[in-house]
Each structure stands twice: as C-alpha cells, then as structure tokens.
C-alpha cells in the first residue's frame, strides 16, 4: 500500500485517450481519479471536490495548465493541494515557469509511470501550506 492509495486525484487533459490511460493507471495505484477535460473544469472541480492532488496537462486550449495552477495556488480553499504539471514542452526551459506558477513538480511527456508515481508520492508526503 503506497502513499497514494485511497487518495483522490484530479487530473486534467484535453485528450480523451490520455485521460483514459491516466484513469486506468491511477485506479491501479489505488487512487480515486476525477477527470477534467480542460483547465477551467479542473479549477471548478478542485474547488468543489477538494482532491488530495491535482495533475494538469500544460497545453490545454483556453487556460493553460500552468495558468490554472497559478489560479489554484491563489485560491484560499485550493492552495494547499499539491499540483503536478505534465508537459510536452521542453522541461529544461519550463522549470522557471513551473516555479513561478507555484506547481509542486512537473514531468515531461512521454514519461515512465514509475517517475509519475514517485512524483505523486513525493508531493503527497510534502507538508502543504495550511488552509487559512
């Protein structure tokens, strides 16, 4: 039983196939997945359902994943939730942007699931800022 078992994980990706792949994997890890099809949906669901962790695709139409992350980190009721960003962009140039947006980590697509699990467990184990 890992740290991720039993945790609610909200994930957002505009590609249906990616959502299916992630949902299957998160379920196999014992998480309770919630799928969002875009960033706005993700921000709304995060406020309503208060998940334990959020996974955001960076390049979604409309609001980008990073912008959504920024909004979540500004929101009083969502700032404590760890956010991980999945990106198809070059990770080396992205590091600074990810830090500015307040994300707790990022992973470049395509990735190994072992890397993702490590990142998720690391983020869940980190003490998060308290809800004010």
């Amino acid at each position: 039983m890992g740290v991720a078992t039993g945790k609610t994980v909200l994930f957002a990706d505009d590609e249906e196939s990616m959502r299916k792949v992630l949902e299957r994997r998160l379920t196999a890890w014992g998480c309770r997945p919630i799928a969002a099809t875009n960033s706005l949906d993700a921000v709304r669901l995060a406020r309503e359902r208060r998940p334990d962790l959020i996974l955001l695709d960076d390049t979604m139409p409309g609001l980008t994943g990073l912008a959504a992350c920024h909004q979540l980190k500004l929101g009083e009721d969502t700032r404590h939730i760890p956010v991980l960003v999945l990106t198809a962009r070059d990770s080396r140039t992205l590091a600074a942007e990810v830090r500015t947006a307040g994300a707790d980590g990022f992973l470049q697509k395509p990735f190994e699931f072992t890397e993702l699990l490590q990142l998720i467990e690391g983020a869940l184990a980190q003490p998060q800022p308290l809800r004010s």
Binding site: S17, M18, V21, R25, A88, Q108, P110, F113
Partner: peptide, 10 residues
C-alpha cells in the same frame, strides 16, 4: 510528444 505519451501510457 503528446501522442507518444498516450501510446507509451497505453
């Protein structure tokens, strides 16, 4: 990269 991520994940 995005389609590759889907193929690899699946």
């Amino acid at each position: 990269r995005s389609p590759l991520a889907i193929i690899k994940g699946a």
